[in-house]
C-alpha cells in the first residue's frame, strides 16, 4: 500500500448526497482487472461518459481544473451500498487519494483505508462551505496533513479531523493489515485450537 502523509492539490466538489459505490464504479466494471489501462475511466463512468464513450462535458470531473483532482469534497453518506473494492480502485486510478464527506458507508470507508485512500469526515456545514469556496474559485488547492490531522481550505482556514490510531499509523507508513496481523500468529493459533476444542460446532463446518 502506498503511504499517505500529506497531499495538496485540486479538490473536485461532488455536490449530491448518497453517492453509492455503484455510481463510483458501475457494476459492469467490477470485472476490470486491477491496474488495467481502462481504470482511469471507471470513476463515475455513467456520469462522465455517454453510452458511445464520448464525454459528458457538464460533469464536474470533465471540467478544468477538476480533471486533475486529487481530492474529492462530497456531501453526506458517501460510498454506501455494494462492498466492491473496485470503487476505491476507480478513485485511485483517476488520481484521487482523499475523499472528504460528512459521513461514509462503513464498508467503503474500510476499503479506502485498506488501499491508501484517506476518508476524511468533516461536519456537513464544512463540506458545504468547502464546496462553495471551490466553485467560487476553482483553481485553488486544498491541503491535507495526516500526521497533524488537518485539512486546509482554499482560504487557508484549518479544520481538524479525527482518525483512529491504527489506520493512521498504517497509512502514514504504507503498511497493510497482513503484516500487522501476522505479529499475532501465536495468539491466532492458540485461539483457533481453543475455539475448535470448546465450540467445534461453530468452528468446524459439519462438525459431528
Amino acid at each position: 500500500m502506498e503511504a499517505f502523509t500529506t497531499l495538496k492539490g485540486i479538490a473536485a466538489p461532488i455536490d449530491f448526497a448518497n453517492v453509492d459505490t455503484n455510481q463510483i464504479c458501475p457494476t459492469e466494471f467490477n470485472k476490470v482487472p486491477f491496474g488495467d489501462p481502462f481504470y482511469p475511466k471507471v470513476l463515475f463512468h455513467y456520469l462522465r461518459f455517454n453510452a458511445d464513450g464520448t464525454e459528458i462535458p457538464d460533469f464536474i470531473l470533465n471540467k478544468e481544473p477538476f480533471r486533475n483532482a486529487k481530492i474529492i469534497v462530497a456531501d453526506r453518506n458517501w460510498g454506501g451500498g455494494s462492498s466492491r473494492e473496485s470503487a476505491v480502485y476507480a478513485l485511485m486510478f483517476f488520481g484521487v487519494r482523499c475523499v472528504i464527506a460528512s459521513s461514509f458507508g462503513d464498508i467503503h470507508h474500510n476499503n479506502c483505508l485498506q488501499n491508501g485512500v484517506l476518508p476524511v469526515k468533516l461536519p456537513q456545514e464544512t463540506c458545504v462551505k468547502l464546496r462553495e469556496q471551490i466553485h467560487a474559485d476553482p483553481g485553488r488547492d486544498i491541503a491535507v496533513d495526516l500526521e497533524a490531522q488537518t485539512v486546509t481550505g482554499p482560504d487557508g482556514e484549518i479544520y481538524r479531523f479525527d482518525i483512529n490510531p491504527v489506520p493512521k499509523r498504517c497509512l502514514l507508513q504504507g503498511l497493510d493489515a497482513i503484516g500487522r496481523t501476522l505479529q499475532f500468529k501465536s495468539d491466532i493459533e492458540a485461539f483457533s485450537k481453543k475455539h475448535h476444542d470448546e465450540v467445534p460446532f461453530l468452528a468446524q463446518p459439519g462438525a459431528a
Binding site: 462492498s83 466492491r84 464498508i107 474500510n110 476499503n111 485498506q114 499475532f184 491466532i188 483457533s192
Partner: peptide, 15 residues
C-alpha cells in the same frame, strides 16, 4: 460484508 482486501486478509489469517 467486506471488500476484496479484507476477504484477502481472512483467507490468509482466518481473522
Amino acid at each position: 460484508g467486506a471488500g476484496a482486501s479484507e476477504i484477502f486478509h481472512i483467507m490468509v489469517t482466518q481473522t
